[in-house]
Design a protein around this nucleic acid. Structure first.
Lengths: 96, 96
DNA sequence: CTGATATATAGGTACATGCTTATATCTTTA
DNA sequence: TAAAGATATAAGCATGTACCTATATATCAG
């Protein structure tokens, strides 16, 4: 497989992770501030298991990072590059 | 629904369109140069019906534009913003 | 009109995905 | 150690999606 196609596969994986509104809600919240699962459950109005499920996926591709603090688990964006990609997409879809 | 959530829904739709490697192949080809369906079929090695199907979806959300020329239909990117979003995602997934 | 070329659509299948409810695991406090 | 709180996992369902093969539509040449 040529390197360009490899790149596109990687990009597609990222896009797939970003293709669910629920996950964008979570990522947006984390772009604002690192949060516990329960905090995310409240701000996003998603069910707790669903939040956990999405976080697991996002952690799987290294978009978010977890760290324990007492009995809470605090999640944060691994880096803010992804926030820019999201912002760009928002800009695009608003210009449309 | 608050405006931020609306924005995220729009972004999610865009990301969903970009989440298939096949469509990224097509968009990459079109970023390089406008092409007919048969040209895209050759460069992407996808089947002709599949290319048409993806093009219909991409046209549906205004990422590509069609124009007839003889018996060919030439597709091109509606604007190049989307090419930047893709390039950004590639950069991200390579840095990971 | 007829055949050839270019593209689009239809129908079907296999698999992935987002969500829900129920339950398990882990951590702290009483 | 027992109970409560915080998070993770499991099982099931309903829907969506990418693809294939077959066929329809449209455009041009003879």
């Amino acid at each position: 497989m040529n390197p360009e196609e490899e790149s596109l596969i990687g990009a597609a994986e990222l896009f797939k992770a970003l293709s669910a509104t629920s996950r964008l809600l979570i990522l947006s919240a984390l772009a604002h501030e690192p949060s516990s699962v329960s905090a995310l459950t409240e701000t996003t109005k998603l069910s707790q298991p669903l939040v956990s499920q999405h976080l697991r996926l996002l952690r799987g591709i290294n978009l978010v990072t977890a760290s324990r603090s007492g009995r809470e688990t605090i999640y944060s964006l691994t880096d803010h590059h992804v926030a820019h990609v999201i912002q760009d997409a928002i800009t695009h879809s608003q210009e449309r």
